[in-house]
């Protein structure tokens, strides 16, 4: 499946050099030329087609986990799922459902797996996004059960905070942060302070505005930096590494 496996070391190195200097558009075009699934989608390469329409194509995997293992792919070349537009993801998943249904009827199996590998570390081999639809038989012992490694409560709390923050950012959801104990103390103190006269308050406000204008340019930068620091949160990385 990988074009690299048939190359001599010299050829592989020459190709790497070439790839280094390419723009994203050139890279996609280059990937397409190398991609056997693009060739299958274009009909340039033979495959056992079980479904096809204008947007997607489904073929039998030549290295199946079980007889009838289907690969469902978009005709357009997308290296990984995050690059795909929402409407295509929606469409291809509806076709996946239909194929799973067809599989249950046609092969008289009792279950199916839908499997996606995003990235090399997840086992993605071809650089063309695809969904595996795999028929399951009793006691076929395929390693497709979700692994288990219990997470402690405090680690779950940390994870939840970090993931929720990112999810809200991606979906554009504004979150209401629960007030920290310190802030509450501050508020209390402020309430207790004797009330300023109107003029003093107005003066103070003007000073604040002046300060803000001065700080504006630097504030933007430091805010961004702070966010980056928070997002990297090495402790969760450690949690994941140590388990």
């Amino acid at each position: 499946m990988e074009p690299n496996s048939q190359m001599t070391p010299e050829q592989a190195q020459a190709m790497q050099e070439k790839v280094k200097n390419m723009s994203p558009e050139e890279l996609k075009e280059f990937q397409k030329q190398q991609c056997i699934f693009c060739h299958i989608a274009e009909g340039k390469m033979q495959a056992k087609k079980v479904y096809e329409d204008d947007k997607v194509i489904a073929v039998l995997d030549i290295n199946p986990a079980n007889a009838g293992h289907i690969l469902l792919l978009p005709k357009e070349h997308y290296a990984i799922m995050p690059l795909m537009p929402d409407d295509l993801i929606s469409y291809i998943s509806m076709v996946a459902k239909a194929l799973s249904n067809a599989m249950l009827k046609a092969l008289k199996v009792e279950g199916t797996n839908i499997f996606i590998a995003n990235g090399m570390s997840a086992g993605q081999k071809a650089q063309h996004f695809m969904m595996h639809i795999i028929p399951r038989n009793k006691n076929d012992n395929l390693p497709l059960t979700v692994p288990k490694m219990a997470v402690s409560k405090p680690d779950m709390e940390k994870l939840k905070e970090i993931v929720t923050k990112k999810v809200n950012e991606i979906f554009g959801i504004k979150e209401e942060k629960p007030k920290k104990a310190e802030d509450k103390e501050k508020e209390k103190k402020e309430e207790k302070k004797p009330k300023k006269t109107k003029q003093k308050i107005v003066d103070a406000e003007f000073k604040e505005i002046e300060k803000k204008i001065k700080k504006k340019s630097t504030a933007k930068k430091s805010k961004k930096k702070k966010e980056e620091e928070e997002a990297s949160l090495d402790d969760i990385t450690n949690v994941l590494n140590n388990l």
């Binding site: 009792e110 279950g111 797996n113 839908i114 570390s121 497709l144 979700v146």
Partner: peptide
């Protein structure tokens, strides 16, 4: 990387 898995049945 991520794996997205549906166990159907």
């Amino acid at each position: 990387g991520t794996n997205i898995i549906v166990n159907n049945g």
